[in-house]
């Protein structure tokens, strides 16, 4: 009973201290082991939290997509998101550019591009169309199995 109380107190301390350490500006990311301990960063609780995150199937979340046309008339797309998992997420993305009729514009460098995001971090990547005829796009993702 005494032991349980001790563990509960330790956990409560970790949670309470960890909650106050959010960055005041969302643009600055402070990773676990850099910021003060919380449940996800504490050396004892981290494996359990990471396992729980894995069981819950946490992954990336796309929060914003911005589309602009650059000076050369090429379509530029910025994809912004957040990795909800407590582990780094390594994935690949594939971009298809579509013309006015909705047909795919093929290019020599159409392939899956690797991308890696830290645990519980914001991320963004940008893609540029290779033809000024591109008016729309499609981006697909898959797990990157080549990287460890």
């Amino acid at each position: 009973m005494k032991m349980l109380l001790l563990v509960a107190c330790m956990l409560a301390t970790v949670v309470l201290t960890g909650c106050n350490e959010e960055s005041c500006d969302g643009r600055v990311q402070v990773q676990d082991k850099v910021k003060s301990d919380n449940l996800g960063g504490n050396i004892i609780t981290r494996p359990f939290v990471a396992a729980g995150s894995g069981m819950l199937g946490h992954g990336i979340e796309i929060t914003d997509v911005k589309q602009t046309r650059n000076e050369a008339g090429l379509l530029e797309v910025s994809v912004i998101g957040f990795n909800k998992a407590y582990n780094p997420n390594r994935f690949e993305y594939y971009t298809e550019w579509l013309d006015e009729s909705g047909a795919v514009i093929e290019s020599a460098t159409d392939n899956w591009m690797p991308f890696s995001v830290n645990a519980r971090s914001n991320f963004s990547f940008k893609v540029v169309s290779k033809s000024p005829n591109a008016v729309d796009f499609r981006i697909n993702t898959r797990k990157n199995r080549k990287v460890k």
Binding site: N70, T109, S129
Partner: peptide, 26 residues
């Protein structure tokens, strides 16, 4: 699986990153 030597996927990746950098640089 990846191979230790350069394969077509490495050339594709390098070429794509080069093209993206070049076209977005203006």
């Amino acid at each position: 699986k990846a191979v230790l030597a350069l394969d077509y996927r490495d050339f594709d990746q390098a070429a794509t990153e080069m093209v993206q950098s070049l076209l977005s640089s203006g």
